[in-house]
Design a protein around this nucleic acid. Sequence first.
DNA 1: CAAATAAGTCAAGACAATTGACTTAAAAGA
DNA 2: TCTTTTAAGTCAATTGTCTTGACTTATTTG
Lengths: 400, 400
Amino acid sequence: MNDVRPIRATSGTNHEGTSAHNRRVIIDALRLNGALSRADLARATRLTKQTVSNIMEELEIDGLVISRETVRRGRGQPSTPYGLVPEGAFAIGLQIDRHITRAIAVDLVGNVLIGKEANLPVGGPATGTPVVLQLVQEVRTELKLRAAQAEKRLVGLGVAMPGPFGIEQDGDDNPWMMGAWQRFPLLETLSAGTGLNVTLQNDAAACATAERMVGAAHGLDHAVCLYVGYGIGAGLILGGDLYSGAHGNAGEIGMALLTAGGRLTQLEHRASLASLYEHLGVDPMAPDIYSLIDRRAAADDPEILAWIEKAAIDLRWSVHLIETIFDPQTVILCGGAPAALATRLIDAMQPLLPSNADRADRLLPRLQLGMTDPWAVARGAAAEPIGHAFDPRFSAILKS
Amino acid sequence: MNDVRPIRATSGTNHEGTSAHNRRVIIDALRLNGALSRADLARATRLTKQTVSNIMEELEIDGLVISRETVRRGRGQPSTPYGLVPEGAFAIGLQIDRHITRAIAVDLVGNVLIGKEANLPVGGPATGTPVVLQLVQEVRTELKLRAAQAEKRLVGLGVAMPGPFGIEQDGDDNPWMMGAWQRFPLLETLSAGTGLNVTLQNDAAACATAERMVGAAHGLDHAVCLYVGYGIGAGLILGGDLYSGAHGNAGEIGMALLTAGGRLTQLEHRASLASLYEHLGVDPMAPDIYSLIDRRAAADDPEILAWIEKAAIDLRWSVHLIETIFDPQTVILCGGAPAALATRLIDAMQPLLPSNADRADRLLPRLQLGMTDPWAVARGAAAEPIGHAFDPRFSAILKS
DNA sequence: CAAATAAGTCAAGACAATTGACTTAAAAGA
DNA sequence: TCTTTTAAGTCAATTGTCTTGACTTATTTG
């Protein structure tokens, strides 16, 4: 008698939805194109001048946009461009990695205001959570000092962590796999501990978010970030949005099996920083490892070059595969690798393998260099709540 | 002085957009769940009862939905379920393949009403276009006889063809590559020749569209169709929508390079029907090849089993790769392969390689069998305009 | 037979975009 | 210099669509 089969449907929309969408479209357009006049915005969004005017007035009152000097562009009344106000919104980004955690504060346009890091003690979430919460609190306190409005304009806490999520892995007790963290109710704990909206993504996705917001993927609808960090992964920007798959694990190409030297192995074992550390015989936990690798790479250390030579083979194949499968506008190499290493990797990957990306009408390079600093992941983590806050479904700072 | 840099922005929306969205949401919900009452729809779409009532009244007048017998479900007034009217819309699907072309007519719920095929003469579009147009016309004429309303409820012509598009390929003069067709202004020609809205997708994408509309991917937001036809490809349903990449070539995994037997080769050369035909030494142009393969596979022909054994290795790897990269809810094997062959392929692929898809909370099999008949591609091609017609941006039959 | 429950309608109201006329400010041409 | 043209932006009224709250209808429960 009782029919309990759930009904599947997407949500309908109403006036508020319409309005929220239009506000978001305008903010997006400003982020993408810099300052624009009301008339420009009306043309670009295909809304009427009046609608744009109304929305801009609201946004100005909300402190999200501000007018600039008028500009004369030929006949007619000069236009008044409006730009985003950096202090219009803030977010905190948190990276949790194997032995270190980083927290940063960013503003609406993606400027990094504060960055702090701390070592994570062994013992997983039980001992790590207090450290993480403490770090976030420090950043938050400092942000409050720097910007009076910050606390009430704080739209959320974005967290990035290596994936995959929700999988019982082999070697789950290996501290480098972070299985304990992945099983831990991190969202709930951080949400309760900070009172902020918390979102979680994997590190490659965070890098892609950062590249899309303020990097090489800015304004692109189809781009893939090949993330080379301690592990390896791909951050997917598909159809203008970050794609995370059914369980948040899309793009975990580090676990892809490939035949190398006649043996089936995982990409991660061939081309990640983990494989480099192993190749060099250095301790991944050494505190100055980033600058060490940077220096040795810059000096064309033969051991590093040997690894690059080998890793480039597999990365070249990865780019070919990404191009073949996703048909993106460009592929961006990014992540926690030092710049000297990353540039040498890109050079060693040339010439790229032939693929569908060899098109006569290409506008962008097939492979380009993205952010290469240890803070990129935290930056992307912070960018997520900012992007999210202007999504129609979640308009936190616009109501009040 | 003249600033001609184009402004990039997404489009805003208005009341009509809201309404079109809500109508589409309702039609989607009916397609997904079968018949639903107004109250059910209101709960599922989070619209008010009144709004749903208004929209349903319109849809009923437009002939897209019809009420069914009332049902008593406990206390309260009995509910009146509404279902989609199959004759509410029609579309024609066209498959253009190497030596054959197929056209079918479908209705709103995906029933195939008419199917016709014709051999394509050698000579590419110059000689092929008249044949194709003739075939479409025949189907259209017959459809008119079958359903009086058909002509004015015809929402478009969907075309499917092997990809990739816009690439100058090696061996472009090879008639199996269809380079001449891919360079030909097909959309414009067919649009002019039929007066219909024409859309184009590759054959794997068409299969995925069909699976989503009426097959194994019905109601799924994340599914990948591994298409094994003359070539091999993947149709991607990501986040509830078909994904085609920046140039319509996403999912062309047939061109992915892999190491097999110590040599770098393309997946297509190992696991497509083309490779089977070559293995068997049969002429791919033989008119009864489909049933021939079906019979031999069903009889466990040793030559076929040998090919299956070999192809399964690479397909198993493909599934692993797809799962690793896309994190889908399920992978569906579909395409132009006969059922006897497809089931044996799936069996030979077991056990699947370990991947992120090995989850404790799985609801669907990792790999399942989809449509396996020569008409699946045409069916998907036809499904595209139907799906598209209820998109907010293109509400063809709703205005009038 | 009354109370509870749920489906569905009615009519008024609220919200947000559109429309068309208007104002303002500059460049171009006579 | 003065008029015309062009474009930005505003004002006030209108329109389209969803929401609200009270109501009606039909059924089960006790």
